[in-house]
């Protein structure tokens, strides 16, 4: 118990310097805008952006929910498909050799270039979902596959010695051994899913009946409502941070008992 409380204090201590730097940055921004008398349509002060966030809260938060829901659904889909395909590829070298080039091709093709094409074939909401899924899928697949493939040979020998079935080998050895890499992939995928959703929304633009945050940015741009652009951007950025934070917590609590990456130093 005391260890976890100590940990919270450590986390606060760790968070203080970047938070202070962020506050200082906002104060400087505010001061420059006010002293120079820069108009809000050029560069809005943080106070104006905050005011806009409160004023347009209904519109912005409903858009946030749209973007967040697409991101999370894409992430969930990518997690299930990525992990399952990695498991299948770990069981069959033939399958792995066949599919790997395509997985890489999907990954290296810029998603911005795929989005308009998806919009031709799919309805805008579905296209956005597929786009977010495609970018989130690969890091989960490649990280999980790497984790499953890099199990200690001595441990595999141990399981051979006891004639472990493929299934028991998977659930008692390969899956837990691959968990750290899988979680690392998931953390990358969380951020990428948001990027994929935003890119697709931007590509859909006014053509789609999109109501996500990215669409709000485009829309506010057309209306030269610069403070609202910033407000929507701030929400997107906070969403990204929140997703990353949540996945980091998940990683920490899943691995803290045994894995080096999640252990407190000096413990």
């Amino acid at each position: 118990m005391s260890a976890s409380r100590l940990n919270w204090r450590e986390m606060l201590t760790a968070a203080a310097p970047p938070l202070a730097a962020f506050m200082a940055f906002l104060a400087l921004w505010e001061a420059v805008v006010r002293l120079r008398g820069i108009p809000p349509y050029m560069l809005p002060a943080p106070s104006i952006i905050l005011q806009k966030l409160i004023e347009d809260r209904e519109l912005l938060f409903s858009s946030l929910l749209v973007t967040l829901s697409i991101t999370l659904r894409a992430l969930a889909l990518a997690t299930v498909c990525g992990a399952l395909l990695a498991l299948a590829m770990a069981q069959s070298k033939w399958l792995a050799r066949t599919l790997t080039p395509y997985a890489i091709m999907l990954q290296v093709t810029p998603i911005v270039a795929i989005a308009p094409l998806l919009l031709v074939y799919l309805s805008p909401p579905r296209a956005v979902l597929v786009c977010a899924f495609l970018v989130a899928f690969f890091p989960i697949l490649s990280n999980t596959a790497l984790g499953l493939a890099s199990v200690d040979h001595a441990l595999l020998d141990l399981f051979d010695l006891y004639h472990a079935s493929a299934w028991r080998r998977l659930i008692y050895l390969r899956a837990p051994a691959a968990l750290p890499q899988f979680l690392a992939g998931l953390r990358i995928a969380g951020g990428l899913a948001l990027i994929g959703a935003v890119v697709a929304e931007l590509a859909a633009g006014a053509a789609g009946q999109g109501t996500g945050l990215a669409f709000r940015i485009v829309e506010a741009g057309f209306r030269l409502d610069i403070p609202r652009m910033f407000a929507a951007l701030a929400l997107l950025s906070l969403t990204g941070v929140a997703i990353y934070g949540a996945l980091s917590m998940l990683t920490y609590y899943s691995l803290r008992r045994w894995h080096e990456s999640a252990r407190e130093r000096g413990a």
Binding site: A154, D157, L158, F159, Y162, Y172, L173, P176, R257, W258
Partner: peptide, 19 residues
């Protein structure tokens, strides 16, 4: 060659579990 995510008991239990 112990499994790092299992405690001592579970590590020793492993061969029987696999059987």
């Amino acid at each position: 060659t112990l499994l790092p995510w299992l405690d001592v008991f579970a590590n020793v239990y492993l061969p029987l579990r696999l059987a």
